[in-house]
Design a protein around this nucleic acid. Structure first.
Length: 897
RNA sequence: GAGGGGAUAACGAAGUGGUCAAACGUGAUGGGUUUAGGACCCAUUGGCUUAGUGCCUUCCGGGGUUCGAAUCCUCGUCCCCUCACCA
């Protein structure tokens, strides 16, 4: 086999594709659209890693496939170009962050081009360009108008030494990642998006996106964390105030013997003020607050509490209950106050630890005497209500809504729906992001920048100071000191920038009309959106996908689109491992895609990475495996370029290879549709193996060419460069990328017929033996009862069993679904005709009655039409009778009369 | 604690009721080709066997449903992931 220079081939075709701009698309209402999208990458400076290659190999092959199927395919690429690493490079190495980012993008793009990805590069975007982030600002202002963007005080991770806010990821073991000093929480004014307004819709929408992996949907559901419950008011003793506490288990209200307040709870101070507990309480709160950041990672944190000395009243039982401050209560969830009882594990242990009285209200149904003193652990099972006045004797799950209603009726509580989802904190005290387009005016307050003044551009990096302390934007007086757009008096510009998740929450809309300069995007989105196939890492299962869904709904409400859900199908690709670990620099186990491309070419890299595992699964990288894919490509090249010996005639071998070819088209197409490229490639390899064997002897030219032609088309989405080259060598003028996907011809797929022949042959020889044994000269009548879903091997067994009987009736089983019923009926007819040595006789076919009756109806029609025979459905009982007659318990048999 | 996903031959990995001793690839063994190596080609790769063929034991373990189970149900074991003081 001659050496093929795959890199040369790749370069040749990449150039041709680019020159002819064959992947450029525009709206075409006559064609069906298909929007295939990969999560746009962050240009990190390392260039592409294997994860990227996997992502793009997946997306590109799918985009190419859909294109060949006649879709108008939108397949764009861009860059998530804002973010911390650029700024850190500026701080550490005094590098211009814009240049740093642009260089990285250029590097990344050059590598993407080497892979031969079929993007419409005219739609490329980068979030750090003013033409893009202008619309971040525009959208922000729209959200501000609608009250969906707002400012409020919020605790942030604060490093006193560096004088800056830290992202959660920058807090390592409770200390600043840079200076290693402890991080504290600080209340700062922050910008938020009101994603909670959409909590319910975001939750419901998950039911509409059917083709998302269940685990992703579950993760989002958990994150949104809807729970319906009751907020119960616990009046504070000798006070007019009450403590509201959220619960999903109001049935335990009579059991509540103490309340736990979060340390941050505003009532903590009120309750303890002026008492002897005040000092101690403060100490405790301080301690917990400090720990909250540090111990976040700690798994089994000791539950700690502090008694405030105050009491509240249980609104159900009227009993006095203690008010505690406890570290397990979080201000963030519910009301920040937990009603605690004997039916919760954590509460129970806490009460035991601090010797707080407990009371049970639910007992097991079969226990008479149930006392709290006897319990070692909380009783968390369902049971019968006790100690609960009028609710005694009820099952607790039945009592639950009744108690809730009773509390509401008596103004002791209200029904509430609680979400875990918090509003989205979008402000960052950073330079390299979209400036939040508002001005803080002493007179007018927060004033949005007028639309005509957008974009608010970042000052050039030379004009700001990257010291690593504070927000660099604050160092630019030019940027900060402005006039209020309303009252024209001196004001200051907001220096916070936006979270980069804002950029990525709508970029897929922008791709639809990337040049639009009056709006974020125009009506073309109505043609292209939603994204039909979105591909990216599982790490974005919650945040990015949730934010993007939120943005879509918000943009819809602004009136920019009618789309509700942005991504119809979602594929979360698995990770690429090496030596059982994630590839990373620190572990030193990186396989650079460039090496693979240099050595074997882009097609091999793409093919292997798709072949080695299903896209969702993680897989172990192996160089040897890549060689296998390389071999396959060489074999395909060989098949197409080295002619076999030709002959004029067509024999069974030719028929068989045609059958195999069409079968492969069918299987590969199905596997593509199911997003199983590894299976598709497996089938292609099988075809290649078959063609190899087939061409050992001389072959029919037409048949051979058809096989190779289809093979080339099938492999084109995976190995596009090779396919183009081979396609050209086969004498085609049009590029294979522009060709249509092959259609399979069902009539050519005669595997079933082959099977039938074999079946008939085998049964004949066996039945002949039986007839001989039974001493029958000429069988006169044969009935076939197609009873269940039997396969040939069983049939054989029956035939064998028949050797011991003198009876003369035949019973053959078949199958459940229509296709199989038909197939088996066909064999049955053939067998009987052959046995009777009379092709004119049409046997009667009986089908056993089963639950799946419907699926038989079509089969019966076909049988009747094709064989001119009567097909009947008989009851299972009759089959039983048939079985009984054969004296073969539990197993019917073939009987010849 | 809650939720999700897994376990298939030496390895990776297909296969979700019958054409299943289980695709495909690696690896291994034998043979061919080659000056040698490499590359390439062919065969074998659970066991026992035949001229095709056939039989037996297999898809983490136990039990079940079925004429029939790698596939469905059930109980268990082990592994992975996500969220988690959520009231």
């Amino acid at each position: 086999m001659e050496e093929v220079d795959f890199n040369k081939i790749a370069a040749k075709w990449q150039k041709k594709w680019e020159e002819k701009k064959i992947f450029k698309v525009k709206v075409d209402s006559k064609k069906k659209k298909y929007y295939c999208l990969e999560m746009y990458p962050y240009p990190s400076g390392q260039g592409l890693h294997m994860g990227h290659v996997r992502n793009y190999a997946m997306g590109d092959s799918y985009a190419r496939y859909k294109r060949m199927r006649g879709f108008n395919v939108l397949y764009p690429m861009g860059y998530d170009a804002f973010g911390m690493p650029a700024e850190n490079a500026a701080i550490k190495n005094k590098i211009n962050p814009r240049k740093w980012t642009e260089d990285n993008m250029a590097l990344m793009k050059s590598q993407q081009k080497l892979l031969g990805l079929s993007y419409d590069w005219d739609r490329e975007l980068a979030s750090c360009n003013p033409e893009y982030y202008k619309w971040n600002q525009w959208i922000f202002l729209k959200l501000l108008e609608r009250g969906l963007a707002y400012k409020k005080k919020s605790p942030v991770n604060w490093c006193e030494d560096c004088g800056t806010v830290l992202a959660n990821e920058q807090v390592e073991d409770g200390a600043c990642w840079r200076c290693k000093n402890p991080v504290s929480e600080k209340e700062l004014e922050q910008w938020f998006f009101k994603i909670t307004n959409y909590a319910d819709e975001l939750l419901k929408g998950l039911d509409d996106v059917k083709d998302w992996a269940e685990r992703v949907k579950t993760m989002q559901r958990n994150w949104i964390g809807k729970s319906e419950g009751t907020e119960i008011f616990f009046p504070i003793e000798k006070s007019k105030e009450a403590i509201p506490a959220f619960t999903t288990r109001p049935d335990t209200v009579f059991s509540v013997t103490f309340i736990a307040l979060a340390p941050e709870h505003p009532l903590v101070e009120k309750v303890t003020k002026g008492t002897k507990y005040e000092k101690e309480a403060k100490k405790f709160v301080e301690k917990v607050k400090r720990e909250s950041v540090i111990d976040r990672i700690n798994e089994e944190k000791e539950k700690e509490g502090f008694f405030t000395g105050k009491y509240a009243i249980n609104p159900a039982s009227g009993e006095r209950i203690q008010i505690w401050i406890a570290n397990f209560a979080v201000m963030d969830y519910g009301t920040g106050a937990v009603m605690c009882d004997a039916h919760d594990k954590r509460d129970f242990r806490f009460a035991k630890k601090y010797d707080i009285p407990l009371k049970v209200v639910i007992k097991p149904a079969n226990v008479k005497k149930f006392r709290v003193e006897d319990l070692k652990e909380a009783h968390t099972d369902d049971g019968i209500m006790i100690n609960s006045d009028q609710f005694n004797g009820m099952h607790n799950r039945k009592a639950l809504p009744k108690i809730s209603a009773w509390l509401v009726k008596n103004n002791k509580g209200k029904k509430v729906v609680n979400f875990k989802l918090r509003d989205w904190l979008i402000s960052r005290q950073r330079y390299w992001g979209t400036p939040i387009p508002v001005i803080n005016c002493k007179k007018c307050g927060i004033v949005g920048i007028p639309e005509k003044d957008l974009p608010v551009k970042l000052p050039p990096p030379e004009k700001v100071k990257f010291t690593g302390e504070g927000n660099p934007l604050e160092s630019s007086e030019e940027f900060v000191n402005v006039k209020c757009p309303k009252c024209k008096s001196a004001a200051t510009r907001e220096t916070d920038t936006m979270d980069t998740f804002v950029d990525s929450s709508w970029y897929f809309f922008r791709y639809c009309s990337p040049k639009e300069d009056k709006k974020p995007f125009d009506d073309e989105v109505e043609y292209w959106m939603p994204v039909d196939q979105y591909i990216g890492g599982i790490e974005h299962a919650i945040l990015h996908l949730l934010y993007a869904r939120f943005f879509t709904k918000a943009l819809r409400d602004i009136g920019l689109t009618t789309v509700d859900e942005p991504f119809s199908n979602l594929l979360n690709q698995g990770m690429v491992l090496k030596d059982g670990m994630v590839m990373s620099k620190s572990k030193g186990n990186i396989v650079d895609p460039r090496e693979i491309i240099d050595k074997y070419g882009a097609d091999t890299a793409r093919l292997f990475i798709l072949f080695v595992a299903l896209p969702e699964k993680e897989f172990e990288w192996s160089d040897k495996g890549a060689e296998g894919s390389y071999r396959l490509l060489k074999r395909v090249y060989y098949l197409a370029t080295e002619k076999p010996k030709y002959k004029k005639t067509v024999d069974n071998k030719d028929k068989h290879i045609l059958s195999k070819t069409h079968q492969t088209i069918k299987q590969v197409t199905e596997s593509y549709e199911e997003l199983k490229p590894s299976v598709a490639i497996g089938k292609i390899i099988e075809l290649v193996n078959h063609i190899y064997k087939y061409r050992e002897a001389s072959v029919n030219k037409k048949v051979y060419e058809e096989a190779v032609k289809n093979l080339t088309l099938l492999i084109a989405p995976f190995a596009p460069h090779l396919a183009e080259e081979v396609w050209e060598k086969l004498g085609n003028k049009k590029m294979v990328s522009l060709e249509s996907w092959p259609e399979y011809d069902q009539s050519r797929i005669d595997k079933e017929a082959e099977f039938a022949d074999e079946l008939v042959h085998n049964v004949l020889s066996d039945v002949e033996k039986i007839i001989e044994l039974a001493g029958i000269k000429e069988p006169k009548k044969i009935t076939l009862i197609i009873a269940a879903d039997w396969k040939y091997t069983l049939l054989k067994t029956l035939v064998t069993a028949m050797k011991d009987t003198r009876d003369t009736k035949a019973v053959i089983g078949t199958c459940m679904d229509e296709r199989k019923v038909k197939a088996y009926a066909k064999y049955a007819v053939k067998i009987i005709q052959a046995l009777l040595k009379d092709n004119s006789k049409i046997p009667k076919i009986l089908l056993e009655e089963k639950k799946e009756l419907e699926s038989y109806k079509a089969a019966i029609e076909t049988i009747e039409k094709e064989y001119g025979t009567k097909a009947e459905i008989i009851s299972e009982k009759e089959t039983e009778n048939a079985k009984a007659k054969q004296a073969l318990p539990g197993k019917p048999a073939i009987v010849v009369e």
